[in-house]
Design a protein around this nucleic acid. Structure first.
Lengths: 147, 147
DNA sequence: TAGGTTAGTCAACGTGGTTGACCAAACCGT
DNA sequence: ACGGTTTGGTCAACCACGTTGACTAACCTA
């Protein structure tokens, strides 16, 4: 049951996050999108670099950027110093979603500590850090899971 | 970091499982497939019931069954008492994969207890049971994550 | 027997992943 | 300064998995 429980815990957090995000003006944001916004960051990136961070091809990253541009979360801008590059930046709406996500995650973690105790939550984090690959930041969940 | 850590823990287990399954004659099995085989079970089911168990439509369940039939893990059989129904059963190969998965998961859990101690692993399980929805068994991970 | 429900399938489509091909811009060694 | 290589972005075709809608065949029941 261990793997199912880890997945259930992850899913509980993500579902609660997105239920709250929907209430706060972000009903179209999907679980994947949050990770992408996080990977873009406040400073912006390029599609290639984004693909690298997410562990997917630059084409896949480009498609997801397209999607989030039409949803109003990202925008593209030319790079004055390198005409090949197109900077991907958060729009104000995207920045708002990212900030709210951080706040809500803090709130959810707080709720866990109220149920389990702060020491137990910290112990879970420590233990998982000990058994999960440390360097890890591949967010290609759909492709990973399905092949 | 809590959600990332839960995901990383889940992913570490699943990746280790499938690395070992690949070594033991099941290189084509994807993470999703293991859950499907589990949901089919030793007694078999129908596509509709499978969709119900997995939390997806009967059409989606039928497609996944098609896939696993061509991979040799499942087979369809007519129901002598209801000509509409088609029983989905594990093939010997499918049963082999399911049994090996169980053994490997036990082994991986054992490895965690060697790193963390049995009490810590049990504590993680207890804690997650306390915060994750109890009734839970929706495995529509791809659709859930991407929308 | 007529009418409603249930199981399975087909078709069209959305989302996210892949690889291969291609162009334009940048970089670099001679 | 030029020519070859690398790099960033895009297009096209394809796969896996999900959805909804429509349809048939079989079962159940009033």
């Amino acid at each position: 049951m261990l793997p199912l429980l880890l997945l259930a815990g992850f899913r509980a957090l993500i579902d609660d996050l997105h239920a709250e995000l929907a209430r706060q003006g972000h009903p179209e944001l999907r679980p994947l999108h949050g990770f992408v916004l996080q990977a873009v960051g406040a400073d912006g990136t390029t599609a290639s670099e984004l693909g690298h961070r997410l562990g997917v091809s630059k084409q896949a990253a480009g498609k997801t950027v397209d999607r989030l541009v039409t949803l109003g979360y990202l925008e593209r801008a030319d790079d004055s110093r390198d005409a090949r590059r197109k900077l991907v930046r958060l729009t104000p709406h995207g920045l708002d979603g990212l900030r709210r996500s951080a706040v809500i995650f803090d709130d959810l973690r707080q709720r866990w500590t109220e149920t389990l105790g702060a020491d137990r939550v910290a112990a879970i984090e420590d233990d998982l850090r000990a058994v999960a690959p440390a360097n890890w930041f591949r967010l290609d969940v759909p492709g990973w899971f399905t092949g």
